[in-house]
C-alpha cells in the first residue's frame, strides 16, 4: 500500500508540476503579501484603522515580520479556501471528466493507493502555496520594513529571530484547518465528478462554516468550528504561550478532515468509472 501510494504521489506531483494553473495558484499566493505591502505603502490609512487593527497589525511599517500574519487575518477564510477549493475540487473530478481516470485505474495500482497519492499531492500543493506566500511575504516585508522585533498580542516585545522562528509553526497551524477544508473539497470532487460543482461546493461549505461562526446563537460552540481554528496561531504570539487553542485546532481539524476523506475513499473504491 505504501509503495503504491508513493508511486501515485510522485505521479500526481508530476502532473501538478506540468500544469500551468498550478504555478498560477502558487504565484497568486506569493503575490498576495507583495500587493498588500504596496497598498500599505501608497495608502493613507492611519494607524489603528484597517489592517493596523488586526492581531500584530500595529507592527506594520515597524517590522517586516508582521506582514504575513496581518494578511492571513485579512484574507480570512476566502483566500486559502479559494486555493484549496480550486485544487481539491479538481484533482479527481477533472480526471473523471477528461477520462484519464480510467486510463490510470487499469494499470497496476489499487484505487485506494491512487486516491491516497492524490490526497498527499493535494496537501503538498497547499503546503507549497503557503510556503511561497510565507517566504515572499517575509522577504518583501524585511526589505521594506526591516528585520525588527515584534510586539506580540500580549504587548510584549519579541526579538526578530524569535518572531521569524515562530513564523513556521504559525503557518503550519494556519494550514491544518485549510487541509480540512481541502479534504471536504476532495470528497466533493469524488462524489460530484464535476470540477466546477466541487469547487463551488467547497467555497460554499467554507462560507457556511464562517456564517455559522458569526451567529451569536452558536457562540458556545464557536471554538469548535473549523474556521475558528484558522486563528489558532494567535496562541504562539501570547506570553505565556497558551496551548489550549493549538491542541483544540489539531483535533477539531482532524474531526472535520477525516470523515470526508473516509467517505471519499469508500465512494472511490466502489464507484463505476464509465466516462
Amino acid at each position: 500500500m505504501i509503495s503504491g501510494t508513493l508511486i501515485s504521489y510522485r505521479a500526481e506531483l508530476r502532473k501538478l508540476i506540468a500544469q500551468r494553473r498550478t504555478w498560477l495558484g502558487i504565484a497568486t499566493a506569493a503575490l498576495v503579501p507583495v500587493i498588500f505591502l504596496i497598498s500599505i505603502q501608497i495608502s493613507k490609512v492611519t494607524p489603528h484603522d484597517g489592517p493596523y487593527d488586526t492581531p500584530l497589525g500595529p507592527n506594520l511599517r515597524h517590522s517586516g515580520l508582521a506582514i504575513d500574519f496581518v494578511v492571513l487575518k485579512l484574507v480570512a477564510v476566502i483566500g486559502p479556501t479559494l486555493i484549496a477549493a480550486l485544487v481539491a475540487g479538481d484533482i479527481v473530478a477533472s480526471e473523471d471528466m477528461a477520462g484519464t481516470l480510467k486510463t490510470i485505474l487499469v494499470r497496476s495500482l489499487r484505487r485506494g493507493e491512487i486516491l491516497a497519492g492524490k490526497v498527499l499531492a493535494l496537501f503538498t500543493y497547499l503546503a507549497a502555496a503557503l510556503l511561497a506566500y510565507t517566504v515572499v511575504g517575509e522577504v518583501t516585508g524585511i526589505i521594506f520594513w526591516g528585520f525588527h522585533p515584534l510586539t506580540n498580542l500580549s504587548g510584549d516585545s519579541i526579538s526578530a529571530p524569535h518572531a521569524l522562528a515562530l513564523t513556521v509553526p504559525s503557518l503550519v497551524l494556519y494550514g491544518i484547518p485549510v487541509l480540512a477544508i481541502a479534504s471536504f473539497g476532495l470528497f466533493l470532487s469524488v462524489v460530484t465528478r464535476h470540477s466546477v460543482a466541487a469547487i463551488a461546493g467547497t467555497l460554499l461549505y467554507a462560507l457556511a462554516l464562517q456564517g455559522l461562526a458569526a451567529l451569536s446563537a452558536l457562540a458556545s460552540i464557536r471554538a469548535f468550528l473549523l474556521t475558528t481554528q484558522l486563528s489558532a496561531w494567535h496562541d504562539l504570539f501570547q506570553t505565556p504561550t497558551a496551548g489550549d487553542a493549538i491542541v483544540r485546532s489539531l483535533w477539531v481539524s482532524a474531526l472535520f478532515a477525516i470523515p470526508p476523506l473516509l467517505a471519499a475513499w469508500i465512494v472511490f473504491q466502489r464507484r463505476d468509472v464509465a466516462t
Partner: peptide, 21 residues
C-alpha cells in the same frame, strides 16, 4: 485513449509506466 493533454507523449508514457511497476 484518454491521456494527459498538457504533457508530451513521452511524459505520458513515463507517467503511466510508473503506475505499472
Amino acid at each position: 485513449p484518454r491521456l494527459y493533454e498538457y504533457m508530451s507523449g513521452r511524459a505520458n508514457l513515463e507517467l503511466l509506466a510508473s503506475f505499472d511497476r
